[in-house]
Design a protein around this nucleic acid. Structure first.
Lengths: 222, 222
DNA sequence: GCTGAAATTTAGATGTGGCTAAACTTCAGA
DNA sequence: TCTGAAGTTTAGCCACATCTAAATTTCAGC
């Protein structure tokens, strides 16, 4: 609803949404700048614009928070992105580690009609190929609590749900070893100081490096 | 190859290509402006930019002509556009008269990988849903000689190949009457002064208004 | 409470692609 | 050949989203 926004504004809304989910409290200009890979000055001026559009509340020098309208913009783009990822992977056979970049540009030009046709064709899926939840048509998203695999101790059981950032190399590495979102695992052993985590998926135990284990989001066995 | 160009530059290249096909000789600034729905001043400055990029040759006050590089840019975009139209119509069931607008924005963000996957999925089609030829991967296009249906006289036979511009209302009107590219017809009668053309498609004779008849491109029976 | 480093914002620039208004070219008709 | 209308280009402006450099604010540590 309301005025259409530019791709840049959509990207900022998406970034702020994602930062709000992780950190608590207001999102800082610096965090946005880092996420968007622009200078802090650029982020600052875009924040001012988003505030002018009513998409964020901005307390100068204090940080930024999405308004309900800003949340809508963010979730709409995220819905586009994740539907597209799912569609590209499923219908066109785009490799798991390539779908993110393709979706990143397509998400901004996807019409509502096409969005709906794609969603219908896929049977209204709830998760993308990375395991991230897809907001529903009315922009409700199922954000389960997940933790980093790295934070678990030996003996824990869980389900690998997604990779928190979209590093193609990590995705490829996991895909090659047959590890995908939804797979259950058990932590067999864990080395201290960022050392590898030994996790058993099915019959096989994999040594997962510190960075990888930090990026892997898991749901604890209830 | 060479530097990537902006969406705007791609659109101008496409427009100039299309204008070159119709009129003979150099393409005028005014024609480009009208086609792009911008002022002549805007077209003029973009022409200067295209010339700087080596995509057109520009004789000031005289007109513009695509260079081989400009032709490549145009054909690449046209390939994207027409593959997308075909894909949207065939795989996603987008209505015939809507595919043009959807493709218009998607064509600029389609990666080469996705283009290839789409082409393969469709079995490397040679024509889009409007009957326009799709340039091959190496940018060869089969531009048959077509004439306007309006230019035919009573008694002529031909095959309807496409609508020269992409007016949704015209496309819808034809679709409703079951007239599609590839259909053969015979001119039964023709009124003078832009009056209707009576064309028989199958068993039915349709009265086609002057504007519509002018937009319908046909191949004459050999 | 002061103070300096870090974070943030402002100032002023750039490049893209539009616009209007004004100047300039071309060319057909008198 | 001259002249005016049509076509084209230039000049100068705007919005967008970025940048660097220079202010400004915040806050932790003394």
């Amino acid at each position: 609803m309301s005025h259409p926004v530019s791709s840049a504004v959509e990207d900022y809304a998406k970034a702020i949404y994602s930062l709000e989910r992780r950190k608590k409290g207001a999102v800082t200009t610096n965090a946005i700048a880092e996420r968007m890979e622009v200078t802090a000055a650029s982020a600052s001026s875009m924040v001012k614009k988003l505030a002018g559009l009513g998409l964020v509340r901005h307390a100068p020098y204090r940080g930024v928070e999405l308004t309900p309208r800003g949340l809508e913009v963010a979730l709409e783009v995220i819905r586009h992105h994740r539907l597209l990822e799912r569609y590209l992977a499923e219908e066109l056979g785009v490799p798991w580690d390539r779908v993110h970049d393709e979706a990143e540009v397509l998400e901004h030009v996807l019409s509502e009609e096409l969005e709906e046709l794609i969603a219908a064709k896929l049977g209204h899926p709830t998760h993308d190929p990375h395991g991230d939840p897809i907001p529903s048509r009315d922009l409700v998203i199922d954000e389960r609590d997940t933790v980093s695999l790295q934070s678990l101790d030996a003996g824990s059981n869980g389900v690998f749900t997604r990779i928190s950032d979209s590093d193609p190399a990590m995705l490829r590495w996991l895909a090659e070893r047959g590890i995908a979102p939804g797979d259950s695992f058990k932590i067999v052993d864990k080395q201290p100081f960022g050392g590898p985590v030994f996790a058993q998926f099915g019959q096989t135990t994999h040594a997962l490096g510190g960075e990888l284990a930090a990026a892997m989001r898991v749901e604890l066995e209830r």
